[in-house]
């Protein structure tokens, strides 16, 4: 078995950490987007220039954001699952061995 390319490994762990970052940022982004409807013009303070937002439009927006979050989360989760599979498998086995070796 040839030695793995260290640069490749490093790059991989770097990517992995960034994916974890993304997983942390995602809810913040979601919250920010979910607060956008608060900025919309309501019927009480609507003007002629900026008419009041319609519920149907906001509903579409909210569902789109939720769906978007869900899809991004899906790809993140899949990438993380792949990371884990490729990850330090031998570390896991050595842990297993150590645990029986009480």
């Amino acid at each position: 078995m040839s030695l793995p390319n260290p640069r490749f490994l490093q790059r991989q762990t770097y990517r992995r950490r960034r994916r974890a970052d993304a997983a942390r940022i995602l809810p913040t982004l979601g919250l920010a987007l979910m607060l956008v409807p608060l900025l919309l013009q309501t019927s009480t303070n609507a003007t002629l220039d900026v008419p009041a937002a319609r519920t149907s439009m906001v509903a579409l927006f909210v569902f789109a954001v939720l769906a978007g979050l869900s899809v991004v989360s899906f790809f993140l989760a899949r990438a993380m699952a792949r990371d884990e599979k490729e990850g330090p498998a031998n570390l896991a086995t050595s842990l297993q061995e150590r645990e029986t070796d009480i």
């Binding site: 608060l38 919309l40 309501t42 019927s43 937002a53 319609r54 519920t55 149907s56 439009m57 906001v58």
Partner: peptide
Amino acid sequence: LARIDSSPIAHWDV
């Protein structure tokens, strides 16, 4: 969507 727009809750009253 049209029905929503014509319903009592059509306006965005957040």
